[in-house]
Amino acid sequence: MSDIKNYICDNEQRLDAFLTSKIGQTRSQVAMLVKNGAVFIEDKKVTRPGVKLKLDQQIRVEFPQAKETPALDIDFDVEILYEDEDVLVINKPSGLTVHPAPSVKEATLVDWLKHKGIRLSTISGEERHGIVHRLDKGTSGTMVVAKNNEAHEFLSSQLQDKSMGRYYLAVINPPLKDDFTTIEQNISRSSHNRLKMACAQGSKSKYAKTTFKVLSLSNDEKYQFIACKLFTGRTHQIRVHLESLNRHIIGDHIYALSPKIEKSERILLHAYMIYFYHPTSKEKVSFVAPLDDVMKTYIDKKFDMEQINEVMDTDNIISSFSANT
């Protein structure tokens, strides 16, 4: 059963602008309502969100019910770094897929969120679960989840204006030559392998920029522990930009040249720290996700842990990037 609301035009303007002011949602959400056939002017279904309204015209909106899909059973837990009424900050484990898809048979982060009772719905009836940004299945680390629609809109806008960001940690080989390396190369789907992205030019490619900072060299000088700062958020961006330098993350079975040479249970890529402005307080906040046992054990075998603990200081990482960018 739909929730029906009626409005009367009190000012000649575009339909999407009018409904945005009445409903308190974004124009994109209003456009989705129109696309789904839920908006009527004088009982006639609207097909364009930009149609011009006349004074005293009657507008009817039939808000559809949210589409709810049942959650799969879960046999895992997720570390919560912070939680309040607006946001949930987690340390996503490696091996956990964020979104359900036809090819994904196991439970995902979305299923875990459903079990926690985090179910947001848009005004157009689409179910969403507060996912603002994502991490690849193998990548671990910080993610922020919105717990209401207002927080979701506020956090999503920060992704667009770059006031939200993350610093990543990775173990790579062979070592980078310079202390800092910045790559600005467009990225698109690989024409040779549909599982991969690649540096490429062309109409379908998207601008991408990454800076890498060397933190430590392994005891045998074959591997490096690095920090990565993303200025854009393209699929596989860190891995693709490293591949353009003939460098690869340990445990990466898609981009590594010879994954059998150096085995790891997981790709050693971790979203170490996230920062953003809180939806309610509007204050800048940041959170750090500790490394999991697999990544810690690998680093402990290859590197001087005393030095590693020193270079992992977040103030050190932030100030290093700030001084270089």
Rank of each mutant, 00 (worst) to 15 (best):
D3H: 09
I4T: 12
E12A: 04
Q13I: 11
L15C: 07
D16V: 07
F18H: 11
K22A: 13
I23T: 10
R27M: 13
A31R: 00
M32I: 03
V39I: 12
F40C: 05
F40D: 10
V46A: 10
T47G: 02
P49D: 04
I59S: 10
R60P: 02
E62L: 11
E62T: 10
F63W: 08
L72G: 12
L72F: 06
Y82T: 11
E85A: 14
V87C: 08
G95V: 11
G95R: 09
V104M: 04
K105F: 08
V110P: 04
K114H: 03
R119P: 00
S121P: 00
I123N: 01
G138M: 05
T139V: 15
G141P: 07
A151W: 06
Q160I: 12
G165R: 01
Y168P: 10
A170M: 06
P175K: 02
P175Q: 01
P175S: 01
D179L: 13
F180G: 00
Q185N: 13
M197L: 08
C199A: 13
A200I: 01
K206L: 11
A208D: 13
A208M: 10
K209E: 09
T211A: 02
L217Q: 13
L217H: 08
L217C: 10
S218K: 05
N219S: 06
Y223F: 14
C228W: 10
F231S: 01
R234E: 14
Q237L: 07
V240K: 06
H241F: 12
H241P: 05
H248K: 06
Y255W: 00
K260Q: 15
I261K: 15
E262Q: 08
K263F: 14
P279C: 13
V285L: 15
D292I: 06
D292T: 12
V294K: 11
Y298P: 09
K301Y: 13
K301C: 13
E310M: 04
E310K: 12
M312G: 12
D313F: 05
D313P: 04
D315F: 09
S322T: 14
S322F: 09
